[in-house]
């Protein structure tokens, strides 16, 4: 059952990715101001244009171009960055770990805060605390991560400067690492001095990304918990004499958590998208920051590569969440 589901999901994922690749490809080529014109220095002759067109295959039909390009992509050839003259794939893969670590840290923070608020709100139903939690998460939701990032910069970077608000790590420590997964590596090598420096840089951008997601988790999980708390089996365990904390965490939570899990998956992809602007805001050297530089320089091959990599990331996360859901949901497991 799970295998069949996995296969069908893999198929739809491939279709989605193909759709994305078509959109990216067509957008870049159809809109006026084609890549060739952007690559040439002013004063290039007709002959230069024709040579370059042939070199990049622009003299063929758009279908042919697409398949040539797609064939390259499948083999890992995303072209060469116009700005730095380096292979796009290498540039993008160098930055990917930074963005992944930031996103995952943000996800963890969001789950911890959101889960805590939902559980507290459920435990203290009908009190002022619950009302306060509702109002806070409502506010947190209606303001996007970009603005939370700026607020955090003001609060913890300027007013009470306890965190770094710029960069991924103190520059002199960069040479300490052999991989680009700084955070992961610092834990594995038990270098907690490096770990502390990394976290004090990453915490603010991660928190900014986490706040809206934490609000969503808190609202949805609290709602599901509320519905579950009225079910008979919960009443039964209460009459058995279990305390309220036990009832909420051990009895209600496992059943209430599934809808939240699905939503977290979808929202996590939005969080990854949000890294683009948050990385810029905190001068964090990840993919998103590179994407904005690429747009400013109109480095189309690089933009193309980044967008496709992000789309792959998106669909993989969705696939993963779907599979996790299938594994965790008993109804799907035994069907």
């Amino acid at each position: 059952m799970i295998l069949r589901r996995l296969l069908s999901r893999l198929a739809t994922t491939l279709v989605t990715l193909l759709g994305v690749s078509v959109i990216v490809f067509v957008t870049i080529r159809v809109v006026p101001g084609n890549p060739i014109a952007m690559m040439l220095p002013p004063g290039a002759t007709e002959a230069d244009i024709d040579r370059l067109r042939a070199l990049y295959g622009f003299d063929r039909s758009i279908m042919e171009q697409y398949f040539i390009w797609l064939w390259g992509v499948v083999q890992g050839d995303f072209g060469t960055s116009i700005q730095s003259r380096q292979p796009v794939l290498r540039l993008v893969l160098n930055r990917l770990p930074a963005t992944l670590e930031l996103s995952i840290m943000a996800l963890v923070i969001a789950v911890v805060i959101g889960g805590f608020l939902a559980l507290t709100g459920t435990r203290l139903r009908g009190t002022r605390t619950e009302g306060a939690i509702d109002v806070t998460s409502g506010m947190a939701l209606s303001v996007p991560d970009f603005l939370w990032g700026l607020v955090l910069i003001l609060l913890f970077g300027v007013l009470w400067p306890v965190f770094h608000i710029s960069g991924r790590i103190s520059p002199q420590l960069t040479s300490e690492f052999t991989t680009n997964f700084f955070l992961f590596e610092s834990v594995v090598r038990l270098r907690f001095d490096l770990w502390r420096d990394l976290v004090s840089h990453m915490f603010m951008p991660a928190l900014a990304l986490a706040i809206p997601l934490a609000a969503i988790i808190s609202q949805l999980l609290k709602q599901s918990l509320k519905e579950t708390m009225h079910l008979d089996y919960v009443t039964l365990s209460r009459t058995k004499g279990y305390g309220e904390n036990h009832v909420i965490i051990r009895e209600a939570l496992p059943n209430a958590v599934l809808p939240t899990l699905t939503l977290v998956g979808v929202q996590f992809t939005f969080l990854i998208g949000g890294t683009v602007i948050i990385e810029r805001l905190f001068s964090y050297e990840g993919l998103g920051n590179m994407a904005i530089d690429a747009v400013i320089n109109r480095d189309l091959p690089l933009i193309q590569g980044i967008v496709i990599l992000f789309a792959v990331l998106f669909t993989v996360v969705n696939l993963f969440v779907d599979m996790l859901y299938a594994v965790l949901n008993p109804r799907l497991r035994h069907a």
């Binding site: 994305v20 957008t27 101001g33 994407a291 747009v295 967008v307």
Partner: peptide, 14 residues
């Protein structure tokens, strides 16, 4: 299926 921020960036780039 398209990340909105990236879509925006792609469009502005073009």
């Amino acid at each position: 299926a398209f990340p909105p921020v990236l879509f925006a960036i792609l469009l502005i780039a073009v």
